[in-house]
Design a binder for these strands. Structure first.
Lengths: 222, 222
DNA sequence: CTGTCAAGTAACCAGTTAGTGCATTAACGG
DNA sequence: CCGTTAATGCACTAACTGGTTACTTGACAG
């Protein structure tokens, strides 16, 4: 998306010429800042002025590129979903041993949530608003469909190999894989209080990951 | 608001005399309205005026009884936690067959979330704020401690009876029981879009409950 | 060099928000 | 009855909010 490409010869400017005006870069900065701010405070709590400041942009730019706070949120959310789906696609679990594939999926989901904490908060925020923004996105549905069928094929291969039991619904499995990681992390603050232990130490995180892998493998085991 | 009630005999009012001024009743109405409004819009999105209106009270009353929006939220949240813990206590799982006890716990958790959808949203909101309100509550910790040890004793009895395996951490189990219900319900809106099926039909809910019971029993099975 | 258009800015606005000051009134003890 | 106290209501504000108007400035084609 960087419009300036190396046009070395003649009058054309050198490639790295720092453009003071760069619509794409500004848009990207706004989206990044918005993601953080929405994740931190939710749609209702986020402040457009704060986003503008964090993005080193003017508030007017936000309305120029995204029309409204809500449409900005929608774009941020859609991007977040596309990011995780693209990352999932890259996992390439289709050629692995079914149990290995499932373990990798649990591990990936966990790591992704850990490294992209905004994702969880954005999804929570969207559900608070009854998913009215996500409804508008067709692309998200496409990616999700491919993802479900990936898990389904893992299950089928496992059944064929005799290591998984029959009749496990891939959607329920998917939900469960997400749930056991997502819940732990999204509720880590109240959880640490209720259970009187720090859920976020390195050891606690590792323990939970292995517990989760175990949970899923036992769930599908023949 | 029907202030006029039968005050049949002399000066002494009958016990049930509907008081026009009733601090406790007003407080209770405010708390109920606040619970709904906070659950619906989150702490940031909730409007004090709306709470006052829904409670058929004046905004001034809210500040009279609860000092600030944030302290109101704190009270609502604390009550919500106490409510679920008290309900859990009433389950009396200690004398049941361990597997039956665990199944009832999963079922209870699920039903409670379904019947008290505000609980989930309040907890989400509190985690968005890094649990800064819950931190102040000692009572919640007390109840939670008792709850964890209840689950622990079920596990121990199961191990002794040879139906559960050894070494399952009761805290991890608790978290998982909550997670598989909580996640499904809190993310029901985005979930219904992503998986292209209505997750809230009677059949879908029943299917999920049984899937969850199955998941937990497989997790602890010897 | 320059005209044009997009990128960028500052100041502003109208509506809303949490929170208050103060007057009023019901309850209740004496 | 009456005086005190707590419950209630109204009207207000100071700060903030999303969104906009009117303007300046840089890039780039011709």
């Amino acid at each position: 998306m960087d419009a300036s490409e190396n046009t070395a010869q003649g009058k054309a400017k050198p490639a790295q010429k720092p453009r003071i005006r760069d619509a794409e870069a500004t848009k990207a900065r706004i989206l990044e800042a918005a993601k953080r701010e929405f994740a931190k405070s939710g749609l209702g709590g986020a402040r457009v002025d704060v986003i503008a400041e964090k993005a080193r942009a003017n508030k007017r730019m936000i309305y120029h590129y995204f029309d409204s706070k809500e449409r900005l949120f929608q774009t941020v959310l859609e991007n977040a979903y596309l990011d995780i789906r693209i990352a999932e696609q890259k996992l390439n679990l289709d050629h692995l041993d079914p149990r290995e594939a499932l373990e990798r999926l649990v591990r990936f989901t966990w790591d992704y949530y850990l490294k992209n904490p905004e994702f969880i908060t954005l999804v929570n925020s969207e559900n608070l608003h009854r998913a009215k923004h996500l409804k508008k996105s067709e692309t998200v549905k496409d990616y999700s469909r491919r993802f479900v069928s990936m898990v389904q094929s893992i299950l089928e291969r496992g059944v064929a190999a005799g290591v998984f039991r029959k009749g496990v619904d891939p959607v329920q499995l998917n939900i469960t894989v997400a749930a056991i990681g997502y819940y732990y992390l999204t509720n880590r603050f109240t959880g640490s209080i209720v259970f009187e232990r720090d859920l976020m130490t390195k050891e606690a995180l590792e323990e939970r990951l292995h517990f989760n892998i175990d949970t899923i493998l036992r769930l599908v085991a023949a």
